[in-house]
Design a protein around this nucleic acid. Sequence first.
RNA 1: GGGGGAUUAGCUCAGUUGGCUAGAGCGUUUGACUGGCAGUCAAGAGGCCACCGGUUCGAAUCCGGUAUUCUCCA
Length: 872
Amino acid sequence: MTSKEVRNAFLSFFQNKGHKVVPSAPIVVKNDPTLMFTNAGMNQFKDYFLGNKEAKDVRVVDTQKCLRVSGKHNDLEEVGVDTYHHTMFEMLGNWSFGDYFKEDTIAWAWELLTEVYKLDKNRLYVTVFEGDKTDGVGPDIESENIWKKYIDADRILRCDKQDNFWEMGETGPCGSCSEIHMDLRPQAEVDKLSGKELVNADHPQVIELWNLVFMEFNRKADKSLESLPAKHVDTGMGLERVLRAVHMQHSNYDTDLFMDTIRDLESISGKTFGKNEPTDIAFRVIADHIRALAFCIADGQLPSNTGAGYVLRRILRRAVRYGYSFLDFKEPFLYKIIDKLSLQFEGVFNELPEQKDFVAKVIEQEEISFLRTLFAGLDRLDKSVENANENLINGEEVFELYDTFGFPIDLTQLIAAEKGLTVDMDGFNKALAEQKARSKADAAKETGDWQVLLNDEKEEFVGYDYTDANVRITRYRTLTVKGKEKFQIVFNITPFYAESGGQVGDTGVLVGSENQEKIKVLDTQKENDLIVHVVDLLPDNAKQVFHANINLNKRDNTQKNHSATHLLHAALKEVLGDHVAQKGSLVDPKKMRFDFSHFTKVTDEELHKIEHIVNTKIGESIVLDEKRNVPYDIAINSGVTALFGEKYGDVVRVITFGEDFSKELCGGTHVANTSEIGRFVFMHESSVAAGVRRVEAITGDEAEDYFVKKLDVLKEVETLLGHPKDLVKQVQSLLKENKENTKKLEVLGQAQLGQLKNTLRSKVSAHNEVNVLIEQVEADNAAGIKDVLFQLRNEVDNLFAVLVANINNKPSLSIMISDSLVKDKGWNAGQLIREWAKEVKGGGGGQPFFAQAGGADVSGLPKVLELAKAFV
RNA sequence: GGGGGAUUAGCUCAGUUGGCUAGAGCGUUUGACUGGCAGUCAAGAGGCCACCGGUUCGAAUCCGGUAUUCUCCA
């Protein structure tokens, strides 16, 4: 069976058992502050388990794109070193939301593995939960008994909380689980030692295949457990592993999922896989990482220096590092293997093949920039190597190299070892720990348990139709950020739009119906599908009805920008082409920002065209056509614009401005008629990454103000210049004139200095073979005097010159001594000037041959001249 | 979000503890050698040393702020 066949077999097996096949959620998570990437199949169903939302289908099956870069068994640095951990993987899962439980789950799992995949029963083991006293949960006898129907009792193992109790996070739904493990070792080894001894022992050949989670508890912030209202099943089986099990292979990488890429890499690197361990690790690292990169970028996440984008950057850099060190790639190479990779996912995850050129371009650009930091780091490392003491490279220097210049630590160690040096890793780790502590302290954030006031009602967003409403608080919790306490509250219904789809959250005010108390709503955010309102104090009476009002002005201006974004999107496609796809947007009351895929700079001419189209559409006063409950398939078939990396439900909201112009799936708020937007103006066009351009624009009052202000400035300039026929020409000629005059002034100044120099030269008198010049001069800055002295130095041998000046009632002293005198007589201008500056209540310094000083008292100048004369 | 760097000629970068009137290489312009190109040599142009403020007799250099950018950590 190929990977495609194994995947399909899973989906159709459960489809035949009454499960609905649902698409994978995007791998990059939006609307959940606790998570950057989908790290388990259950993420997209979190709301069902938490009881925030009711499941429409109680039996579901899917394959979910997942990414893990940290966790108890997943350290990025380990991936590729072993043969069975991955960053990106597909999690096959079947789900029951309050429907079937342990009996069916176990029976079907066994049937699929042994009858469809035909795995060898003699190599399978299962585990069940042994119970935990502190949690007050007993052993999972129920599962054990079910298993006994299918498998020998001595193949069933009881395991502890760490292995067989699944938790979503610190808090949230959880429950015991039952795992199926498989022994893939050669028969000779199996004969020597039973696989039973190796289950859960991190043996590379005795691996966990499938985890069946029986969700029945909710872990609260105080660590106690409470029962969930309904019992659920959440199972997860890594496609990469089961595929390997089906073929009894030694490594996940031996399956077609990875071998295609590895063969591709062999042909561009000229190296062979399977020859020696270090290069094999490099092959595996790259074959793994390229998948993570490809899917994240296809889902709209670009490499960057914060958050999820930073994780992506690290993955890419790790791949490049291995390619650089072990496969001799000194130039970008990752982008070359995207093409073949994307073929594997045609018909499964079409977002990748459809965007492969874009993905490759982003990766190539990122590779180029990393290679640049790599080469810069190499230079810097050379210096540290020179400074090494007793064959030990300073840990702090290495940390600086890593921290500030992004040079990978393992590469530093590698290079050091080549030169017979070692790196002071203790010093490095200490510095790293300090930095981690700093960041953690800053990001500290704590949420309390939800306090439930009202249980029976579901929250509903009414903000499309109402901007105010009478609401009740259903629950609230505290939120502590950097020692500051805030509160999050949830209503039964709400007119507040929660930040999503780039549109900022509403703000506003709550007024108590009974005591008239006012609570300000500072922000509105989404946690999955829950709408959370942020306030900084709780009402005295939280149980009363509140009249909720949103800040209308803010909402109005924001939705003008949002609707304009849709017009812009359509106009961009019209002018630039169909390859334009939204890559991100921000809509707030002041402006809009829109990122989209496009490979070259948008020219001024194109911008004008786009601006013109948008403004024409505004002028056409198109009425908003909003359809709320359109089945997804029908919407897509009608040619609506959907975004990659966005999660859509079965029914979607379609926003149309002109049937043949702009049709988008969108949850945001919009103007009722495009004429409300008023006017649309571009402010900026720039690049955010390879293949992604960013435009910024304003609308409505902001645009109006902008024009008024610009016109005012223009009029003022025209008035100042006496209303010339051609303003631009006039300014150009003024600038030119100015430049010429500056040049002329410079020349004049030089001439003046030349004259001063000539006068001074005639005053030079010889004393004992020293040419002495001691004078008070007129000057308006000390730099001029310096200039003259340097010129005299070139013209007069054995010069000893002391010039003093009164510049704006402040004394200035300068001394110039020819090199020969400095050398022969040991004279030192710096020392002399420090001495003499005392006479003018000042100080100064310089070098032996030239020094300057200033001071506060001009009356001391004659005395300085006397001292100077006395000196020679 | 927190820390650390960087910003000097069109490009890549030097510029020691503040003080030899801001440099190199590449590129560019002009000229010479050559039948032409390539090349070599010579000469020149090109800098608010990111911006704003402060310390100082004196700031590219030190301090504070802003902007941009790189990088590490969350």
